[in-house]
Write a protein that binds this DNA or RNA. Structure first.
Lengths: 344, 344
DNA sequence: CTGAAAGCGCTTACAG
DNA sequence: CTGAAAGCGCTTACAG
């Protein structure tokens, strides 16, 4: 603030005056325009440094019609998966020089998702990323399909929208096959909420694997992702355990597996001696549960990076003739909660 | 798009033309200026509706010098606490009509925090909220103290900056006193990382409570918030258990308590019969651990709301003569992991 | 209660 | 390689 009118922050014209050039030349330097003489460039840079000048991004956005901001719609970023994805998105966006404006929803339906998208549209974001793991949310996002590029994270296949997702079906196959390979006659399944695409994909992968193996397909036990619902599922399975002779359970996420572990423990059923358990996500706690949980790890950071890369590419090159679907492979992490069945 | 030049989105002048007024009148309607005749207002509103007009926020920001955006600096939003706080912040900001621009850091030091603040400053945010739970981060934030109002969430007391925080000392007192009241001779402590203000506050509260009770103060066991570090602390405590005769442990967060539970279980030490455990946070999993975990609940949503309210107030009314400190009380949640010591 | 004028701080052709 | 001009879409005094 040693130059320029006191009290106001410096503008391009202040820099220009000090550098002895016009403000257009300052603009050229800032935008890495090739045609600037090195000596001029250095003078401008020095003046910028001296004044602590920062470009006014609102003014810039007004003329370029680019805000350099990406909107993110998310649901319950308190859950490990969405939180991790968001973290990955944010890192990748910043590396690319974009700002992230986020709205996270408490409840998902066409109305709330629509409002969120409106909210971000009002901000004139350059692109939109929707962490839209529910059928409803995906539908709401695809209904929008406005002027701005949209990428769905964990979105469904149907809606003709670019998607970046972990291969849920594949993950469920890994989990189910692992248990079958250990020698279990079949594998039970505690599912996530019916309207979540991930829950649906995992159930599909589980079912396909059992069918391919030609084994009996037990009835699905419903859950809602919460430890509590896993606990309740566990009580039900424990009650049926002797009758059903369940020896292996693939649980659709780690939090439910944690609740299920608790219920089996209460019922005096040992894991893995009596029942083997496999979860999904590999939350940081998974390794330290009793027993340590075999699970399927998702690379959320990678999903975030790929989503940003895709939306930026869409911004640059315009929409594709056919919507892309980028798939990130999951990895099975084997721990103590799964073993061969007792030979009875 | 039925009016105006095809291909471009409608601007204020388009609305004005359709409503038969000048664009200033449209502006007045949008800004809820009192002096607009109701009939005129209705015509303008109808035109806005008809065109699907949205105000260009960049143009608005250019003249008002307000971006209606709040910047948030956070650290590892993958952790339950920061994720929950962020969620609360975002809800509260949106309710107040503000956008949130977030940058989350992987590592915290003066440099990374400084860069984050620069990044947000470049965006000309109207206010800044720093989830700055480390000593270093708090220092970096207070070093800034630029032109824009800053509120520190979980910040320290020293830096003369407005702070919103859960009363960590009080929470630790609740936990420690609970264990003493159950009849334990003293209480051990697994601390969080030394440079975290929350870890420091909880340790302070624990120590003060023991001192006030006139009981022996055991050496602190160090952790880093992770389940793994809790596990390692648990192994150390288990190894010393007979020698040290530890019967009660206050663990500085739930994730470490989870790891500690695992270690004690491996060592054949029963919780709570042999050792009582109390955690901190009340993560969703806490209720379903084996055994269900007694812990101290923090109201992160409330912290978020209060932080937004404070920063907005600072934006409106300017800085206070003396920096405010708003404290949110924690609550003890009693579950099965804590009980009276065995009478030996 | 409403309109004509000026200006916010940039970028983008257009000259030279 | 660099500058004078116009304009992005709003809001804010200023008139009336």
């Amino acid at each position: 603030m040693t130059h320029g009118a006191a009290g106001r922050s410096p503008v391009m014209a202040d820099v220009a005056r000090i550098a002895g050039v016009s403000h257009q030349t300052v603009s050229r330097v800032l935008n890495h325009h090739p045609n600037v003489r090195p000596a001029t460039r250095d003078r401008v840079l020095a003046a910028i440094e001296e004044l602590g000048y920062r470009r006014n991004l609102s003014a810039r956005a007004l003329v370029t019609r680019r805000t350099n901001t990406l909107g993110v719609v998310a649901f319950d970023t308190t859950l490990y998966g969405p939180a991790s994805t968001l973290f990955g998105l944010e890192q990748a966006a910043r590396d690319a020089g974009y700002f992230i404006s986020i709205v996270s929803l408490k409840t998902i339906n066409r109305k709330t998702v629509g409002e969120a998208l409106d909210y971000l549209a009002a901000q004139a974001v350059d692109g939109l990323i929707a962490i839209a793991p529910q059928v409803e949310a995906a539908a709401a996002v695809s209904a929008l399909q406005g002027n701005v590029p949209v990428v769905a994270v964990e979105g469904g296949e149907a809606d003709g929208m670019p998607v970046v997702a972990v291969d849920q079906v594949r993950g469920a196959e890994l989990a189910t096959r692992h248990l079958l390979d250990l020698g279990h006659r079949t594998v039970w399944h505690v599912a996530g909420p019916a309207d979540w695409l991930e829950a649906e994909g995992r159930q599909r992968g589980w079912r396909a694997t059992l069918r391919a193996a030609g084994v009996e397909i037990p009835p699905v036990v419903a859950g809602d992702w919460s430890p509590r619902s896993g606990y309740e599922a566990g009580r039900r399975i424990a009650a049926d355990a002797r009758a059903s002779r369940a020896t292996a359970v693939f649980v659709s996420n780690d939090q439910m597996a944690l609740g299920l572990l608790r219920a089996l423990h209460e019922a005096g059923i040992r894991v893995p001696q009596d029942v083997s358990i496999v979860g999904f996500d590999d939350i940081p706690e998974a390794e330290f549960l009793t027993p340590p949980l075999t699970t399927v790890r998702q690379d959320f950071a990678e999903v975030g990076r790929k989503s940003i890369a895709l939306v930026l590419d869409l911004i640059e090159t315009g929409p594709r003739p056919v919507a892309e679907r980028i798939v990130v492979p999951p990895v099975l992490v084997t721990r103590a909660s799964s073993t061969a069945p007792a030979t009875t």
